[in-house]
Every structure is written in structure tokens, then in C-alpha cells.
Simulated assay, not measured.
Amino acid sequence: MSLPQPVPPSWKDLGKSSNDLLSRDYYFSGNSLEVKTVTPNNVAFKVSGKQDDKSKAVSGELEAKYTDKAHGVVFTQAWTTANFLRTQIEAENHLAKGLKFDVNAALAATGAGKTALVTTTYKQPGLHTRAFLDLFKGPTFTADTVIGRDGFLLGAEASYNVTEGKVTRYAAAVGFSAPEYAVTLQGLNNLNLISASYYHRVSPDVEAGAKAVYDYKSTTQNVNLEVGAKAYLDNAAFVKAKINNAGILGLGYTQALRPGVKASFGLALDTQRLNEVTPTGPAHKIGAHFVFEG
């Protein structure tokens, strides 16, 4: 008798362990700040701001999220300094168990732009499928499905432009996921972009991963390779390091200063231009990120 199958990850989360290891907690592009609070009636507020290291421009967003756990409804409203309003409504397990509806709309206060994306997600043991309808782009219908059994994963995605009456994008993926490691191979961008990723939890304190991307249509460098690692120094701090085949070395350090207060620092070094200064400034980047949560 086979064991019950877990719900596989969604299409966008295939290779997530490796992607998070190589992309999250690296803050190179200026300074950023997040402040999070939660009220007694389950309204979560988040204020975030970022200063770009090149233009020195400051951008920010104010977000409020209300969660009604009893009825499986989440309502999110956000407003950015670019005068963009975003509204999201999520409802889960209403018509059937594992079924979720999501409406995400955004509108520029100046009327210069608008988006509306309707999403349906259905999750069951061994199956994770989603369907999207982008109302103002096309409209375009996109569907993806991931099936899993005994750790093996198989997924596919396709987009159909309703107005033009043709498939505009398709992709496929295979992988294997276990508690200690994961391997994913994806054919993206109409199978013109091949991405292979690997993640390994070496020990409770050390993680390692790698990702290679091969672009059939690239006119310069067809293969991009990146490897990285993460090590926990203690319960409150960890360091990360990564390097790619272009010689860019990334370093990150995150420290929990106290409960609810976290600081992260990042440094990107171009190892091929250690003493070089570009016309717009140094060839290297540095940044910081602070989170206050209550």
C-alpha cells in the first residue's frame, strides 16, 4: 500500500529552495526598510521603503492586509509612492476543499495603467494546478500543472492569447524533491531557455546550491552558472556567499538584533575589476536592509 502523497509545489515554486538560496537576503542595490505590525483584529500593516543606489530615488509602499481565518478570506490593499493602487482578494476552500480564488487588480491614480489578474488554484495530494486570466493583457489565459509522486515532479505551463487565438508561451519541467535535497530541470520561454538547479541541506547549519541557465538565443554568453552557500552562525545570525561565472561575488550577513528587529547587509564584488571605478561610480555594490516587526 503506497503512502499518502503530499501536495506538490506550484509551478512558480519549482526550484524554489535553490532560487531562495541564491537570491534572497542579498541586498546590493541601496538601502531598504520594512516595518510590520499586526492589530488585535487581524489587520497586518507593512510599510516598506527603498533608496536606489544609482539614482538615489526613494520609493515606498503602504500595505494593509486583513485575514478572516474562520471564512478563509484575505483582503489586501496597497498604495505606492508611484501613485499605484493595488487590491487583492483571496478566498479558499469555499466551493471545494483545496480550491482557491484570487483577484488581483492594480490601477495608476493618473489612469496611465491598469492590470487585473483572476487566478484559480486547485490543490490535492499529488496535484497542484492553477489557471490565470489576465483581463487587460490580451486577454491572456495561462494554465500550469504540477503532479508529484514519491518525490518525483512533472510540470507544464502554457499561455493562450484569446484575441490572437494562439499559444504565446509554453514550458515544461521535471524534478525530484526530498527533505535534504532537490533537483529541478526546466525548459522555459518556449523551451529556448534551459534551467537546471540543485539544492542540498548539508547539515542543520549549512545549505548549498547551484543553478545553470542555457539560452539558445543568446548572442554573447549562452551559459550562466551560479553557486552559493548559507551557514548559520547561531540561532540569530547567518552568512551567505555566492559567485557566478561572470566573476561577481555576492556576500550577505543577516542578524536578528532582538525579537522583531532584523538587519541585513550585502556586498557585491566584481572580482575581475577589483580596483576599477566605472564612470557612474565603483564597480562594486553595497546595501543594507532593516526589518522592524511587532
Rank of each mutant, 00 (worst) to 15 (best):
236 A>V: 15
230 K>A: 05
187 G>C: 03
169 R>M: 07
201 R>G: 01
222 N>D: 10
164 E>Y: 15
195 S>T: 15
194 I>A: 11
181 Y>E: 00
219 T>D: 07
180 E>V: 02
202 V>N: 03
233 L>Q: 05
173 A>S: 10
168 T>C: 01
172 A>M: 14
213 V>P: 00
158 A>Q: 13
232 Y>H: 11
236 A>P: 12
240 K>C: 01
241 A>N: 02
230 K>R: 09
175 G>R: 06
199 Y>M: 03
245 N>V: 08
248 I>H: 10
183 V>H: 02
226 E>S: 10
225 L>V: 15
159 S>I: 10
239 V>L: 07
244 N>D: 14
242 K>W: 01
169 R>I: 01
181 Y>G: 08
232 Y>T: 15
213 V>D: 08
238 F>K: 02
230 K>T: 04
252 G>S: 00
163 T>I: 15
159 S>Y: 13
155 G>I: 08
241 A>K: 10
161 N>G: 05
254 T>A: 08
254 T>S: 13
214 Y>V: 07
222 N>I: 02
160 Y>A: 01
223 V>L: 15
218 S>L: 10
166 K>G: 03
184 T>L: 03
200 H>Y: 12
220 T>D: 14
239 V>H: 08
237 A>D: 04
249 L>I: 08
152 F>Q: 05
170 Y>D: 03
181 Y>D: 03
248 I>L: 07
248 I>F: 13
190 N>C: 06
247 G>K: 11
245 N>H: 04
183 V>I: 12
204 P>L: 13
237 A>N: 06
197 S>L: 05
205 D>E: 12
192 N>M: 03
232 Y>K: 09
206 V>H: 06
196 A>I: 02
210 A>K: 00
182 A>N: 02
226 E>D: 10
158 A>T: 12
164 E>D: 15
186 Q>V: 02
216 Y>V: 09
186 Q>S: 02
188 L>V: 00
229 A>T: 05
189 N>P: 00
182 A>M: 09
189 N>H: 12
208 A>T: 06
205 D>R: 11
217 K>W: 05
213 V>I: 12
152 F>E: 02
241 A>F: 07
189 N>Q: 14
190 N>D: 15
210 A>T: 06
222 N>T: 13
198 Y>R: 03
190 N>L: 09
219 T>C: 04
162 V>P: 03
248 I>K: 15
173 A>E: 13
233 L>W: 07
203 S>T: 14
252 G>D: 05
182 A>C: 00
209 G>Y: 00
153 L>P: 04
154 L>N: 09
215 D>I: 01
185 L>I: 11
215 D>W: 09
179 P>L: 05
220 T>Q: 15
203 S>K: 05
207 E>T: 04
225 L>A: 04
246 A>I: 01
203 S>N: 06
223 V>T: 15
155 G>V: 06
160 Y>H: 10
181 Y>I: 06
236 A>K: 14
215 D>F: 04
230 K>S: 03
152 F>W: 13
213 V>S: 09
180 E>N: 14
235 N>Q: 15
217 K>E: 08
244 N>R: 10
251 L>I: 04
180 E>R: 13
157 E>N: 09
178 A>G: 09
189 N>K: 14
161 N>I: 14
161 N>R: 14
173 A>N: 07
245 N>Y: 12
232 Y>R: 11
239 V>S: 02
